[in-house]
């Protein structure tokens, strides 16, 4: 464990808590893409298949349970909670996220470190996580006034992977044979997808104006 990865995990945790806070306290999911939440639930379900077979540490197991639990409960809230579901804007959240799942699965079958079920699922979860934010970014461009919590949620979600890139650089230089091209390239693509969001987020913070993405 290094400071970059720990900071990344805490940032990721913070993004999930911000979202749960928004949904649980103000009982609203306005501006939140259910599609992105469903993709993230799938990412965690396919990435943490080793939850009960490989024990790494209490921290690792605890965080996996938190990410699994929170992502599925957020999907449940937006789909079935009688109050929250009313604020879900399904007419705007129209990204065909199934078109993301299949290419990621095919790519995982073609490009992976080892052709085993567990490894292909893990690789699939990496490719899917890289593009999972797309429905949310599209929704933000359609949502005129982005509320603070939603903006903070997306920012933290992007920042966590950027911190992971620093972690990979650190591990590359400190651990012999630590090379994971698939993870690194997926993580880089994922972070680059946030580039323009980060730009507008920073601008809105610097000029102290409401966050707004150009359509």
């Amino acid at each position: 464990m290094n400071i970059f990865r720990f900071a990344g995990d805490m940032t990721h945790l913070a993004s999930v808590l911000v979202l749960l806070l928004k949904i649980h306290t103000i009982k609203s999911c306005a501006g939140i893409s259910l599609k992105t939440q469903e993709l993230y639930a799938l990412v965690f379900a396919t990435r943490y298949l080793d939850l009960f077979t490989d024990y790494i540490s209490l921290y690792n197991t605890l965080m996996k349970l938190i990410f699994l639990g929170s992502s599925f409960s957020i999907v449940w809230y937006i789909r079935y909670h009688k109050i929250v579901r009313r604020s879900y804007d399904k007419d705007q959240d129209t990204f065909r996220h199934y078109f993301l799942v299949l290419p990621c699965l095919l790519l995982a079958l073609l490009i992976n470190e080892k052709f085993t079920f567990r490894e292909v699922m893990w690789t699939f979860s990496l490719y899917l996580e890289a593009v999972a934010i797309l429905p949310q970014l599209v929704l933000l461009q359609r949502t005129r006034n982005i509320d603070n919590l939603t903006g903070q949620y997306v920012f933290l979600l992007g920042a966590y992977r950027a911190l992971y890139i620093l972690n990979w650089i650190y591990r590359y230089f400190t651990e012999p044979h630590y090379v994971h091209w698939i993870t690194w390239i997926s993580g880089l693509v994922q972070t680059l997808l946030y580039a323009d969001f980060f730009y507008y987020y920073f601008q809105s913070w610097k000029n102290n104006v409401k966050l707004e993405l150009p359509a």
């Binding site: 995990d9 990721h12 080793d50 790494i56 690792n60 893990w122 992971y164 972690n167």
Partner: peptide, 10 residues
Amino acid sequence: NPKPPPKDEL
């Protein structure tokens, strides 16, 4: 062949 190291990252 040795078992690949477990994935220690989240």
